[in-house]
Simulated assay, not measured.
Amino acid sequence: MPLLSSVDLRPSVHHSTIDIGAIAFSQQPDNDDVVMIPAEGLRLSSHDPSFYPAMTLEHLSHAPESTPPGGWDYQRIFNGVTLGDNVSVLGLFGTYFGQLNLPSGRYDLRLLRRRDEAPVRGEEPPQVIDDTLDEDEEDEVDGPTEDAVEHWLIQFWPSTE
């Protein structure tokens, strides 16, 4: 595969959404519960129980010849999307998680998703309460604490249209 650049991310999911942009689409998805296109971007519906799905963005020199291995359960290609200077991954409230730098222009985009089986959890250990934490600090998590169950691959290559 003619990979020019890539970035691996673990964005935080709020209200089951991840936003990717800025991308201008010439086609809208019909009857698709995985992807929406609000304004200039792509909104993905994520249901990773860790709230931190794995995401890879790739810039390819030309269209891929085949689907990468991995047991993908969702695949969609968008032809002729228009990009600015980069593609950013944002949370619902505008939290920035990273970007893939791409030259401005028209691209084709392939979106792939797979879900691994969630690990079976044994009996939960008894909760230990630490009285030194404030109530507000107890619920805050700075990043993923377990492996992702949901994996996204978003590939961009120059459009031939």
Rank of each mutant, 00 (worst) to 15 (best):
G94Y: 06
H62R: 15
F93W: 03
E117S: 12
G80K: 02
T95M: 04
G80A: 12
R76I: 04
V120F: 04
R113K: 15
G94H: 05
V120C: 03
L111D: 00
G98I: 01
N86I: 00
R115N: 14
F97N: 01
P119D: 08
R106N: 11
A63M: 12
R76M: 08
V128Q: 13
D116Q: 11
L83D: 00
Q75M: 09
D85N: 15
L109Q: 14
L111M: 10
P125F: 08
P68E: 11
E123Q: 14
L111W: 03
Y107P: 02
Q75V: 07
S66F: 12
Q99V: 05
V81Q: 00
G94E: 04
G71Y: 05
Q99R: 15
I129L: 12
T82I: 10
V81N: 00
A63D: 11
P119W: 07
G122C: 02
D73S: 14
H62N: 10
D130W: 02
V120L: 12
F97W: 14
D85G: 15
R115W: 00
P125H: 04
G70H: 11
E124R: 15
Y96F: 14
L92G: 03
R115M: 10
F97E: 05
F97H: 15
G98M: 07
G70W: 09
D116W: 01
A63S: 13
G84S: 10
N86T: 09
G98D: 04
L92I: 10
F78G: 01
